[in-house]
Design a protein around this nucleic acid. Sequence first.
RNA 1: AGGCACGUAGCUCAGUGGUAGAGCACCACCUUGACACGGUGGGGGUCGGCGGUUCAAUCCCGCCCGUGCCUACCA
Length: 913
Amino acid sequence: MARRWPPRERDATPGSAMADALERFLSIDPDTLPKHFDAPAAEARWGAEWERAGVYRWDASRPRSETFVVDTPPPTVSGSLHVGHILSYTHTDVLVRHQRMRGKSIFYPMGWDDNGLPTERRVQNHFHVRCDPRLPFDPALAIEPATGKQDKEPPRQVSRANFIELCHRVTAEDEKAFEQLWRRIGLSVDWTQVYATIDDRCRHIAQLSFLDLWRKQHVYNADAPTMWDIDFQTAVAQAEMEDRPKPGAFHRIEFGVEGSAEGFVIATTRPELLAACVGVTAHPDDARYKHLFGRTAVTPLFRAPVPIFASELVDREKGTGILMVCTFGDATDVRWWREERLALRQLVGRDGRFAPVEFGSEAFPSRDAAAANAAYAELSRKSVNQARTRVVELLRDPAASANGRGAPLVAEPEPIEHSVKFYEKGDRPLELVSTRQWFVRLLDKKQALVDKGAQISWHPESMGIRYRDWTQNLQLDWCISRQRFFGVPIPVWYPLDASGQPDYARPLVAEEAQLPVDPMTAAPRGYEESQRDQPGGFTPDADVFDTWFTSSLTPQIGSHWGLDAERHSKLYPADLRPQSHEIIRTWAFYTIAKSLLHENDVPWRHVAISGWVLDPDRKKMSKSKGNVVTPLPLLDRYTADGARYWSASARLGSDTAADEQVFKVGKRLVTKLFNAGKFVLAQTAEVHPISHELDRAFVFALKDLVARATEAFDRFNHAQALADTETFFWSAFTDTYLEIAKLRARGEIGGSEAERGSAVASLRLALDVLLRLFAPFLPYISEEIWSWAFAQERGQPTIHRAPWPGEADFRAVAAPRVAGAFERASECWRAINKAKADGAVSMGREVASLAIVANAKTLAELAPVLADVLGAGRCRAHTLRERSSLADGAFLIEDAVFAERETRPEGDVDSEV
RNA sequence: AGGCACGUAGCUCAGUGGUAGAGCACCACCUUGACACGGUGGGGGUCGGCGGUUCAAUCCCGCCCGUGCCUACCA
């Protein structure tokens, strides 16, 4: 019996389409939909709708066990947007959307990391200014962005407060750009939970953290050699240092030995530090130098007497096997300086220049002060590089010799390449400078830190090893003070004694009730503002915290630690920390450290590490290489879902090429879903259960897909879930099942209402389930199709709060008689298609007759679904041939005779309308 | 120098102790009643190399080569 198709008598709006009667499946009129999916319109519409309906709002009333908490990485807003952002943030969003559909209340905040040097640097360039903290605040100061013309002029000096104001100005703009991108790619962030690392609450919590660490005696301040960036003029932590290979040269320099005419030759790459030499050392077993231990060496040029001692740390093979110890050339110098209680001769100042000093004094002894001062006059105020050049020239003069045996430079410098420590954001090598800094004691907690790391699930697991290795190799306590401006102030003052000298041993730490506090403008409890910098009064600590000191508290910032105990108990520890692998040693490490020190807990249960985005030449994208791909044009070209498809195709931890082909595949998938959805929802029939054999076999295969995808998500393998779902959708569903079932749905094969109803019910179930499987990956197209019928039918307006597919979806469908019947149908269908391709006829061509060849077992398994396959293949007559030589599941088509030309079945649907 | 990861079709990547997979690209065909932003079919690989374990190794083990990252080396 012919049926009206498509049904046209209904309301023209798909969303409000109604069933004819209760016993018919709700269907839509596809003609009311655009020919092609209008992605930009859908992105705008659904973005607004999700926001309006609060789909992603955290439900604070649900218990912790039903809540999934994300410790979102706050992006550095001063950086530029690139596709890497899409990759890692989409990974998180996919996992989150899956958890939401599993029924969890999601806490998914967004933070902006605006605090710190990147922002300061951007402000310096953008406005062509520098901060001079000595200047007073100028409330009327109006500064416009630099035009480029000013580049040659010296930068304008502004006060600390004015500088901070400018920092807020640029970050506010940057945050808008990020939020736009996040919304466009459909991050299901709860936009009511937003913070900035410089805002009042973050400053409050960071300062609270300091107070807690102070109470627990985990922090201390010390005047100690610290890695120092001479351009930014700030201390730097171990985690922010990186090695860079640089050309250098070994300089062989002869020293004298006091009370003797002999000498020895040290090798150094830092000859300019000769004036800062405080000792000489060699390996205790080195026969060449054994006789020198305990005696006094005399440096050339400066004639300084320094002790010669033995140390196991010396490598006999390196250089000449004997070396000078300076304050300070490297970390080993610091160790020798401490262990041997050597003198401190700090010459390189905070600006990287040699400080003026007087030789012949107690601090700078010399056996020939006049010669030493004459030589040092050549170096004073020079930069490290300038001093190196000059000192080498001076050492070529035989008069500089400490023992009268000729020029101290005994050989031409030998060029080498060695690695030199840099601040990761810096341009000149770090110097070790003795300054007063605050530290968090971590070295004595290595084992506890390693143990906490082992309690966390790392995805992929190998990233946990990286954390462990870093932690075990930790060399220094965490230096948390920075001599910068745009950061969280250290909430400390120092009392001044009667002579105006600060007492660093008894800092005045702020009280909790004062937080957040800026000691530069507020006075400590018990003091008046008038006592600032007065003898007997107080002086503020002018420093700010390392940005990681705040960033390491993101789980606590989300949970309002210290401010709201109930909320904290619901949100801490978090479930998921997504991040990239290069900041395991910083962000992950410090966050675990804070969690250990504050609560003796882990900060989160899972860490998901995303890889990097590589350019087509497999190089990491970075601004300096100029190979950054900006995300917005990609979103325009391939849609947000298409870009998400690319992201989600990459497994956690593996680096990914920004391959436009993959974006294209994603867009194609979106289009296919649109078309398949439109088609399936246009089918209608009387409502009948899924009873037909092929339908049950197909649903059985679908159920298996759901199990596999769910299991993949449980293993944090979203890429596997996507690949499985996509393969099933494309191959099992659209290419096979839909092609076969549509004829029965239209009544062209089979014929009973029950058979039609079973086909329509199966198509709809498949679409319903597949949409939900795709929803975490492709939120826009899945929501779009969901809205056409399922939203109403299931009483769930958004697919993103619909339940993840599972048992309940399949309970009503009985298992097929033959478990692999759907696979048999697919294989046979493929064989018939191949026969048509071989015969160069269209897939729609009727087949007058053919023989299906397979082994007996396979033919038996095909039997229950054979009629559907033959119908869909438009085969009029067939014979079955048993051939035992064929493998199970293999089909051959023989003796195919095609009809002369394609004919349409009678009762063409449109002809009746 | 150590650690970790990777090496599979031209490209991007899955995968498994039992006859090698997908998508893209390529070639041929189909001329479209969901979809040409489509469909069908095809060609194409000693699974980096050499050994070992095994009835059987792309997979497990060892060594080597190559690539990337992390860490160390800084006298």
